[in-house]
Design a protein around this nucleic acid. Structure first.
Lengths: 156, 156
DNA sequence: GAGTAAAGTTTACATTTGTAAATTAATTTT
DNA sequence: AAAATTAATTTACAAATGTAAACTTTACTC
């Protein structure tokens, strides 16, 4: 049966392509998705239909309307979808490496004046309570026996 | 046959757990990996051995030594591994959403004084050339026909 | 309303991933 | 060296994912 909530499911790479179009167009018909993705991804229309179905089953898309060319709508906003993916990734990174990673991302991507201003503010706010060093949290719960424990601290 | 380069392969979620330990300990034996992960992840040792093998095949781990308790070493640094995952993700995000996403990440994670200082510098450097608005790049290459095109710009 | 076109549903099938048992080979111990 | 232990290799198998053909139903057109 078709899922309603997006219970623990993940949005896969292929499915993500579908979601992007849906978000960008604020909902889309299969026809629009096929037009866009068969070109961009070189997928057959069948493939795109399958992805739509799976996204419905996972609860990330729901259909709108009663007569046939249905419109498919996202059940979460694009930013929520992004947060989902980003949190899954950052939740599995060593705490020590997050700073350098964010610095690299900020360097690498184009940001607006407003984005930079917000970042500045947030950074200023954090400054007062920021630690001198962020500790590595990799082996906290997995008590290594005899061996030396976390080597991150020695690493240059 | 066993791969040497990490040709286009991806590091999966389970495999990532193995890599984290290897990075943290600067290389590890299967025994160490089993000790740590069978506890943390509740995996059987067979499972961990399979993951080690797959990581070798994908070229992310290589074995060191000639006699039996081999040591497995990462073929890329932890930061390189992180960059790989992060770039894969950020390469599939709408350019317009990257700013808010980074702001959220900076808010959410603990950063050191040094991290914040570097971020400040980078932000200051970017300020002079930053655009007022980052354009949505979602539908550039997928020419939608009649329909309205990117709705991101209307989105609040 | 019959025929055609479009949209949606079912079925399919190979690859990858998660998870692990069984087997073999090398080391260590007695 | 035989026995026991540990490490590594093979084989296994279900679920998820990437990709798509075939089939069915609904809407549109003449």
């Amino acid at each position: 049966m078709t899922q309603t909530k997006n219970n623990n499911h993940e949005i896969t790479a292929s499915e993500w392509e579908v979601m992007r179009i849906v978000w960008t167009l604020s909902g889309a018909t299969s026809h629009q998705l096929i037009a866009s993705l068969s070109e961009k991804m070189a997928w057959q229309e069948s493939t795109i239909k399958t992805l739509i179905r799976r996204l419905e089953e996972k609860g990330f898309l729901k259909r709108e309307g009663t007569s046939r060319p249905f419109k498919y709508l996202a059940t979460l906003s694009e930013q929520e979808g992004i947060n989902l993916q980003v949190d899954r990734l950052f939740g599995n990174l060593c705490a020590m490496h997050i700073g350098p990673t964010l610095i690299r991302l900020v360097k690498q991507h184009q940001l607006s004046q407003a984005d930079l201003a917000s970042l500045s503010t947030v950074i200023a706010e954090k400054a007062s309570t920021a630690p001198v060093k962020v500790a590595c949290d990799c082996l906290t719960d997995c008590q290594m026996e005899d061996d030396g424990g976390c080597q991150h601290d020695q690493a240059k």
